[in-house]
Design a protein around this nucleic acid. Sequence first.
DNA 1: CCCGGATCCTGCTGGC
DNA 2: TGCCAGCAGGATCCGG
Length: 344
Amino acid sequence: MPELPEVETVRDGLDRLVVGAVVSDVVVFREYSVRRHDGGPDSFRDQLVGRRLDAAVRRGKFLWLPLAPGSTRLPLVEPVEAPAAALLAHLGMSGQLLVRGARPSGEQGPSAVLDAGSAGSSDDWRHPHLRVRLHLTGAASGARYLDFVDQRTFGHLSVQDLVPDGADPATPPSGLPAGHGSDLPLLPEPVAHIARDLLDPNLDLDGLVRRVRRRRTQIKRALLDQTVVSGVGNIYADEALWRAQVHWARPTDKLRATDVRRVLGSAAEVMREALAQGGTSFDDLYVNVNGQSGYFDRSLAVYGRENEPCRRCGAPVRRDAFMNRSSFTCPVCQRPPRALTPPR
DNA sequence: CCCGGATCCTGCTGGC
DNA sequence: TGCCAGCAGGATCCGG
């Protein structure tokens, strides 16, 4: 499932392969995939055709490509005006953004084969779950299509106005890694209420610890609340809590600051490790822009490992129902709160 | 404002 | 073999 490391992997691929390209056409195969766009598929197309994809930016699990007036000519001078709109993407639980037709380049290493899934077929090959296709011109990589593929359709694309950061208007100055975007003062409107993520260089960690401890909920709920801290999903939440040896049901307002800090640090750590391995995938639902899977699932300590031995103490991993999904814990390493001592 | 549960959707899996 | 319930889950909506 795409969480922060997977989305960042995609962002990096888009940055390298489609930024600078101009959208020459848009085909929406499934209207539901642009349901968050105000005006529907026709408006979505109208607002993209002729515009240049100017950057690839991410916050948490949201990803966007700011739009600029289209010109296939390489700009000699940076545009004076900031883009007023962006193509916004959320991958949901099965969304993929696949770049097709790009030429391999020496710098891209083994990820440079960009036609995964289309070997032997024509350039117009369509994935069975293709929902939206952007036709591109002028990409330095040679990319011809940007395909939004999404089996379970929780993901979506839209064009959104860029607005000031609602939760954090006093944005620190720039000088940050290019492309990350935390130095950009404007966000797509649906992202304005999303908190900074744990890999954001401008994250206020002390403020986040205080904010978590002010809440009256369970620690895992706080971790999954994208208005508190973004980018963490069910998988990395369980992995982070296991590393920090904190049970998911512990009440936030009774946790020590040092424990909250350790949980957040573990989450950042596990996501950095996953990112270094190209993200997590259990099947082919998550892939990078080239259609290749990450390998982090081989490193998971508890998620999806019910009844298998804890990698730290050997006790069988326990699965609990949680928020209409699952939580995986080591019953020995992660002591449950007294109020919730589980049966058995 | 804060919290938590229901809901959207598709395809695969497992039980009978 | 076939059918259907259950499951996966991020963000949003809505009721308390």
